[in-house]
Write a protein that binds this DNA or RNA. Structure first.
Lengths: 217, 217
DNA sequence: ATTACTAATGTACGAGTAA
DNA sequence: TTTACTCGTACATTAGTAA
């Protein structure tokens, strides 16, 4: 929860680039807590893989790990999406997951298909690629959930009602795709991608493959 | 401490622009805490003037105050200074304060003067203009304290030892100045400015005058 | 100087619940 | 349904130290 402020302080001391000598007392003063608490927080960050430390008799050197940097970067992107009005791109990281095959059922509905074609400019392949998001990206998904995106209206068939969804243009390994999600935020850690072709086949993806999705917002 | 994450969530829900209907339960889910805790946090933010709320029998509307927005904006600037490599400018607001006249003593030391001339390109007037920072700018000063700046080495005279300081180029009402501060962060809410001329005279400044200092970082 | 343990204290959390 | 109170418990923090 308070990771962000600690990492921010560490990064401002240069620990996002190189190992940085920083005593627990100094950090404690900057953060307004006791030396003991600052030390404990650092130990905790190290245990969770957000920083690495090197101890010696003179003190310690601290450096942010990739994950630590990713945490800060994610926060920066969230803030940027608030303060920068212009269109931006947001990078979600995750891995291909098998999913429930449920997405395909929806993508076969003509009521959705014709809207996708109009809004995205391509006829979607009747299936979805599900991507399980990494820890850092999970927070960025909240950004998407709060942005309007392109609205796909709901509709009614004799069998049932289909709810409103929204989508965002995106790129996956250079291929034009779209992120589809319910308009009412279902707070899941998985995003569903659609494209003109079968993404698993055309990109030769299999479950567990790491992927980056570049979403245009 | 955790204000940032709450404000971030509120802003992503649109509460930085307009009053935003948001139940404590919804917020609680987004933040991963209980409804009671989310409610308590909101009450606390309201008490400290970071948000305003409007209660009715259906629930509540929440909106960020200027101070709430400033808190987020300050965090955004700190993060931007980390991720945007290009030179940036940081704006500190405050008012002219009389100071202790102590700065002038330091600025008369030849050990400092020759270094200032070399690093800044001008011979500093032997006095400082002290600016008491506003609340929001105080946090931004932490950014400066953590940035390297231009290093002015310490030195020893027969009388005493002078510590290492650092400085940043800046502009004050269009005039080229520099912000000087100890390398070891003395967490004060005042910054000291030096310039080629007597700033009080050349800019006709007097105690209490509001000033903006544009620092190049 | 440091880091970081232990023990005592303090504070925050959420269950239950009222309005 | 909401918001938000009380209160017992659990966790976080710090003082005092050891290494």
């Amino acid at each position: 929860m308070r990771d962000l402020l600690i990492l921010l302080e560490l990064a401002q001391a240069g620990a996002h680039i190189a190992p940085c000598r920083l005593s627990s007392k100094t950090l404690a003063t900057k953060l307004g807590v006791s030396q003991q608490t600052a030390a404990r927080w650092l130990i905790d960050l190290e245990r969770r893989g957000l920083v690495t430390r090197a101890l010696d008799r003179r003190g310690q050197s601290v450096q942010l790990t990739k994950e630590g940097q990713a945490t800060l970067h994610s926060a920066h992107q969230r803030l940027s999406s608030i303060f920068d009005a212009r269109p931006r791109t947001l990078e979600l990281k995750g891995s291909v997951t098998s999913g429930l095959g449920e997405g395909g059922y929806y993508m076969r509905q003509e009521g959705y298909r014709k809207q996708f074609k109009r809004l995205l400019g391509f006829e979607p392949y009747p299936g979805t690629l599900d991507v399980k998001l990494s820890n850092e990206s999970r927070e960025l998904k909240a950004t998407l959930e709060n942005l309007p995106g392109k609205r796909i209206d709901g509709f009614v068939t004799p069998e049932r009602t289909f709810g409103q969804v929204k989508c965002f243009s995106a790129k996956l390994r250079g291929v034009r795709v779209a992120v589809v999600m319910p308009s009412r935020s279902a707070h899941a850690d998985v995003i569903e991608l659609i494209s003109a072709k079968n993404l698993r086949k055309s990109l030769k993806l299999k479950g567990g493959d790491a992927v980056n999705v570049e979403v245009t917002i």
